[in-house]
Design a protein around this nucleic acid. Structure first.
Length: 262
DNA sequence: CCAGACGTTGTT
DNA sequence: GTCTGG
DNA sequence: CCAGACGTTGTT
DNA sequence: GTCTGG
């Protein structure tokens, strides 16, 4: 789930200014110089982009983290490579139980602002990429977990993260309809009022229960989706401006309406 | 007890 | 580090 | 989507 | 050829 996200430098800077202050935004701008963030970041076994995260330990100090969480108990670099393809996402239902995520779920939560994300709609044996966003918010927060891990051999520090997922709502079930796949998922989208709750220390709230209450599908009526050009391959639009531009596939008219207001 | 896993999703 | 499976 | 397996018995 | 794993 979450084939890719749109998280542009410009939008990250804007969120840094709104959450933090001018100095924080300036530090972030220097971190991102030259701007290296485009319209689409892939999340798959071959691609581990760095994105801007706001963490619980420094909610006003955004940092760059690599997608694919590396737990603290990882023994060496080979194990890191083996594991992090499989920790791009964390199932919200089990983050407090799984050895890979438990510590992060308790003490290292974060949010990442995106303008939307990408999924494939399957119709007539073909896959049609779609862009999904919120109708009335230019950028919104996805719930994440983060870790820091140091490779003892190279002394290299890895700051990594995983995007939390939850059950898909009706819109996401219609889009993310890969035949044979079971239990469709969507990223955990936080409403504006939920962002600080997700970042708050456990002891300051009603503990795990308060966090678990946030782990639920986002209301579908607040979301919209449209089809976009192929993201990969010869005609691929990935990691370039315009990846999220609407592109109409005539044959999809037969599939019926997919999205609200898309 | 020790060895081995530790995880999720999907189409270049 | 901690849990699971053999 | 592509790459690679595609099988069985059985324990130092 | 078809299924599985990545």
């Amino acid at each position: 789930m979450c084939y890719g996200v749109k998280a542009r430098t410009e939008m990250s800077l804007r969120m840094a200014r709104s959450r933090g202050d001018a100095a924080t935004a300036e530090r972030l701008r220097q971190l991102l110089e030259p701007p290296e963030v485009f319209d689409l970041h892939f999340a798959n076994a071959f691609d581990h982009p760095r994105l801007v995260l706001f963490t619980d330990t420094a909610p006003r100090e955004p940092g760059l983290f690599t997608w694919g969480l590396v737990p603290g108990w990882v023994k060496g670099d080979a194990q890191r490579v083996e594991l992090w393809n499989r920790t791009l996402n964390a199932r919200g239902e089990t983050i407090f139980d799984k050895p890979a995520f438990r510590a992060a779920a308790k003490h290292r939560r974060a949010i990442v602002y995106v303008e939307g994300f990408y999924e494939h709609f399957h119709f007539g044996k073909k896959a049609y990429p779609h862009f999904i966003r919120l109708k009335d918010r230019e950028a919104f927060a996805l719930a994440a977990l983060w870790e820091e891990w140091t490779d003892r051999e190279s002394n290299m520090l890895w700051r990594t993260f995983s995007i939390v997922t939850t059950e898909a709502n009706a819109l996401m079930r219609r889009i993310h309809n890969k035949p044979g796949s079971e239990g469709p998922r969507m990223p955990l989208i936080l409403a504006e009022g939920e962002e600080e709750q997700w970042l708050a220390p456990l002891h300051s709230t009603h503990g795990e229960a308060a966090l678990k209450a946030l782990i639920k599908p986002f209301p579908e009526e607040a979301m919209q989706a449209w089809s976009v050009k192929p993201l990969l391959g010869k005609e691929g639009k990935g990691n370039r401006a315009g990846a999220s531009d609407e592109f109409d596939y005539p044959e999809l008219a037969l599939a019926g309406p997919l999205a609200h207001g898309g």
